[in-house]
Amino acid sequence: MATESDLVAFATQVTCPDDFDQFWDGVLSGLNGIPLDSKVTHDPLRSTETASVYQVCYRSLDDLEIFGWYAVPAPGDGPFPAVLILPGYKSEPALRRDWAGKGVAALSVAVRGKLPSSAEFNPGYPGLLTHGVEDRETYSYKGVISDCVRGVDFLLSRPEVDASQIYCCGSSQGGGLTLITTGLRHEIKAGVAGYPFLCCFPESMRMLRSYPYDELSCYARAYPDRVEQALDTLRYFDAVNFAPRIECPMAVGIAMEDEVCPPETGYAAYRLLNPERELRLFPNSGHGNAHAYPAWEAAWLQQRMGATAS
């Protein structure tokens, strides 16, 4: 169990590469050159009186087709606030009709490797976290993060979305991806990162023997001569290096008994956020299972949406 003192006392050894911004500027520039080519298909089976549900897909890095669930308030034409919901490591992307019922369009992204975005890239679970980690150009998360960034592009392309009201949230890997995506795309107005994964890789893999971080420990045991190289790659994908680049309000939720993402590492990202940050600690809660978390996340975002969301 972590205490608040443990969180404050923890100092990560992760440093930011000198060419961090240059690398990501290059990735974003490359993405801009790929047509979004989005397709939106109404799903009557999943639609309700208050939510029109669509299966969507769009193009991302390496021209991969990325799938998402898109729930839009019904009836009405908008423009609506929109929330980009980023997925956990191995969980399915959630179809969030509840947001549509609150007057908010919700896009839930199945990043590459997840069904049904796995046709051309499928390293598996376990597998994704170490796939191509020898080089920042080949690392799986270059694509995964690109898929999240393109989710912002999708929302910006939609006539029913208020482009000035785009929000982002997710838990676990989705929490880490929320920090990363919000650091890269300043169109996002506020975000909530729950139980954030992808923070402080070197410490996380040492602090725990649980997956997914243990994939990195397995990698280190199997390829000791490549560890330094891999850790250098991971600096480009560590959420603590994106946190200072976030310009909007951001809330971070941390479970103090988290056995998957060490609480200290989420806090390390939190403390690097701009002053418009908020921390919520969930005592006696483990990874992803704080009962109060979903309501807190929704309320915090709705408060930022103001009167726009009902």
Binding site: A255, E257, N284, S285, G286, G288, N289, A290, H291
Partner: peptide
């Protein structure tokens, strides 16, 4: 437990 689909969460774990 005073929870939803997560059941007892960490406590029950």
């Amino acid at each position: 437990y005073e929870g939803a689909a997560e059941g007892g969460g960490h406590e029950h774990g």
